[in-house]
Amino acid sequence: MEGLAAVALAIALVGIGFWTLIVRRNLIWKLLGLNVAAGGAILFLVALAHRPGARPPIVGLGPGPSADPLPHALVLTAIVIDFATLALALVYVVFLTEHRHTQDVRRLERDEERGWPQP
């Protein structure tokens, strides 16, 4: 039941994340949507590792089943790498804003069709 709720939430998060990624025209909003979607993907893995009544995967916490430690290990590094790639993406968003004076993808595309304004 609990794992199922978490899986449903993960799918919902990926859904609204991708919705933002597609619908919003501002690049930083798109990155925020991507961020939420990545959180949903991570939650999906963690929810799969969960079993009913499981305890954390640490030895000596008593009897009973423990959550699967492998997805946790996968996800732990993914969170940190997420931060790093997000920083890189933001650097290039700032770069684009500084040079083209806009973060609106539609305006960026229009400018590209017309040829970039010469500084």
Binding site: P57, V59, P69, H72, A73, L76
Partner: peptide
Amino acid sequence: AENVVAAII
């Protein structure tokens, strides 16, 4: 280790 996740990572 005692933390299985740390042992795996």
